[in-house]
Design a protein around this nucleic acid. Structure first.
Length: 588
DNA sequence: GATTTCACGTA
DNA sequence: CGTACGTGAAATCC
């Protein structure tokens, strides 16, 4: 491997090395410049790294590779249109499962090195030497100050922690990312394509591209934020939690008044701490209500038994807003520009859904009127209709279930086939996908087995795999790991079965959704941005004049995504799209 | 001070 | 009709 070379024109150097349209070029940033790599060639250039990459993109039209989508941030901030990219961390999560993404972990996994021996920062001197020239403590292997790999094969932890120290190191760092990407491609290429009629590229590779783009979208969502009408938000909070307290004493008084509405309904309950479940249970007991715990679904049937139950449940709702979604929450997460910002991940540790902090994914419906388009703009809200049963039809290859996706409502034809009503059919399908433990879907469930044996076998196979502790792979190739059970009690074994059964459906649905979302993102007109991803729902903030265009785009992007993702399955995927001013205006 | 339990919001 | 996630408060464990 050649040492990285300095370049005055990185684009020309990369072109000389064979880079061109669509070819992989890795990027790594350093404080003093940028490193770039194509195949075995690594170059570095000092100065404005963003300008260098902008020029490389313009002249070569390559596909970028990076250790993680955090490397997209300088480009996004610099207003550079980020093209399709390959995210080494995201692809690691796809091929290996889990939520890891640190370069050291990813490198070790790709090289087959034991994760238990991963070096940490500060240990480098024990294993061969330091970059600053302090000795090797008797070891024979000299450590190249610009080699990202240590003599023992692991990646140097100091660079992984803080990034390469300079542009020379960044070039080698970029080349190392390319090496991992090549290893991942080989793993993905060996996975079978589950589609009946697979067009190129193979589904697992397509998924890797999509997941990579989803990571960029996650970074972008964290920057963009969700538009919030602060006045409405404050009004909604005030209705539920009272006026904003001026000081701690006032806050305590408001709280005490709220507590009193519940305590006053039961004799001798003046000192009960309503935030303490054990004390609440005692209070209910004094009111003649005996419950094993105080969860709201358990208390619901007792709403009419004693007024304290209704008061308590209403208190809980108000308390939720006051503590979790109150003034402190608005102060912490809504910026001066009226954008609610949280931290996004492109995939969680389990089946691969996106996650978001700052309450973005669990905002109570009653606060949704506060999510509003800015002046001159609209919110285009779109969600995938009945996505999980449609996904089940696609991933299992069940032609009869696929036939049921032809219309807008999948459950009607299923009910016809089963000879039951629609509501029963819906419960049966959901019970099959999620592995019911209670309730009475019995007869309809047996009907499903007869009518759609291919889909039901697919679910049963996943369930059996989970019970046995064998990992499963989703349709797009994501490894979903099963955990070891010290003492495999039946309850734990069947919980693992339900987890696996759910993961193959939920995980595939997440892959489909992300592919749709990133296709939409790449096609949006100027001024329009994706502002929220919610598992099967997309929210786009767009100039009012572009509303119709965005609506058409959401449908068209789903058509294009389905043509690749569900090629040959005969499954129809549908989106419900509406143009609104406030999120709450859309039907849910 | 860190971890666990309970509770509850979203899909 | 089950899974997943993030959150806050109180209890629990050092």
């Amino acid at each position: 491997m050649e040492a990285p070379g300095e370049s005055r024109d990185a684009a020309a150097s990369l072109r000389a090395a064979g880079a061109g349209p669509g070819s992989p070029v890795a990027v790594a940033w350093a404080p003093d410049g940028v490193g770039l790599a194509h195949e075995g060639t690594a170059v570095w250039q000092r100065g404005d790294g963003v300008a260098v990459v902008r020029r490389v993109l313009h002249e070569l039209r390559p596909r970028l590779t990076w250790w993680s989508a955090a490397d997209a941030l300088p480009l996004l901030s610099g207003g550079v249109r980020v093209p399709s990219s390959w995210d080494v961390a995201a692809t690691h999560r796809l091929v290996a499962g889990g939520s890891a993404g640190h370069p050291g972990t990813v490198w070790a996994a790709a090289r087959g090195l034991a994760a238990g021996h991963l070096p940490r920062t500060g240990q480098l001197d024990l294993l061969g030497g330091l970059a600053d020239g302090q000795g090797g403590h008797g070891h024979d292997d000299p450590v190249d100050a610009h080699d990202p790999v240590r003599p023992d094969g692991y990646l140097r932890p100091d660079w992984a922690e803080t990034g390469p120290p300079d542009a020379v190191a960044a070039a080698a760092w970029a080349r190392a990312a390319l090496e991992v990407a090549a290893a991942h491609r080989a793993v993905l290429a060996a996975l079978p394509d589950p589609r009946r009629d697979p067009p190129a590229p193979a589904l697992a590779e397509l998924t890797a591209w999509s997941e990579s783009a989803a990571e960029v979208l996650a970074v972008e969502l964290g920057e963009t934020g969700l538009p919030v009408d602060r006045a409405t938000a404050l009004a909604l909070v005030e209705e539920r939690a009272g006026p904003r307290p001026a000081d701690a004493a006032e806050a305590a008084a408001t709280r005490a008044a709220r507590d009193a509405e519940v305590r006053d309904l039961v004799r001798g309950a003046a000192d009960v701490d309503l935030r303490n479940p054990a004390q609440v249970r005692d209070l209910l007991h004094r009111a003649g209500i005996d419950v094993p715990d105080t969860r709201s679904w358990r208390l619901e049937p007792f709403r009419t038994a004693h007024p304290v139950v209704d008061a308590l449940l209403r208190w809980r709702k108000a308390e939720r807003v006051a503590t979790t979604y109150g003034y402190a929450w608005l102060d912490r997460h809504v910026g001066a520009d009226g954008r609610l910002r949280g931290t996004w991940t492109g995939c969680d540790g389990a089946a691969g859904r996106m996650t978001a902090s700052a309450g973005l994914h669990n905002l109570p419906a009653e606060l949704r009127p506060a999510v509003a388009a800015e002046p001159g703009h609209v919110l285009v809200r779109a969600d995938l209709g009945q996505v999980e049963p449609r996904v089940l039809a696609a991933v299992s290859g069940d032609q009869d279930l696929a036939a049921a996706t032809a219309g807008p409502d999948l459950y009607a034809p299923v009910a016809g086939r089963l000879g039951c009503d629609r509501a029963t059919a819906k419960i049966a399908v959901l019970a099959a996908m999620y592995g019911q433990t209670s309730g009475t879907a019995g007869e309809a469930l047996a009907g499903l087995e007869r009518a759609y044996p291919v889909a039901m076998d697919h679910l049963r196979a996943a369930d059996a795999s989970g019970r046995a502790g064998r990992h499963v792979r989703t349709y797009g190739g994501r490894l979903v790991r099963m955990w070891h059970l010290e003492n495999p009690e039946p309850a734990a074994v069947s919980a693992r079965g339900r987890f696996a059964r759910n993961a193959v459906v939920q995980g595939a649905a997440a892959e489909l959704f992300k592919m749709w979302a990133v296709t939409v993102r790449a096609a949006l007109p100027p001024g329009a941005q994706v502002v929220l991803c919610l598992h099967d729902e997309l929210l786009v903030h767009a100039p009012a004049a572009a509303a119709d265009e965005v609506v058409a785009l959401l449908h068209e992007c789903l058509r294009r995504t389905a043509a690749r993702w569900a090629a040959g399955s005969g499954v129809r995927l549908v989106a419900d799209v509406s143009v609104v001013t406030r999120w709450s205006d859309a039907k849910g």
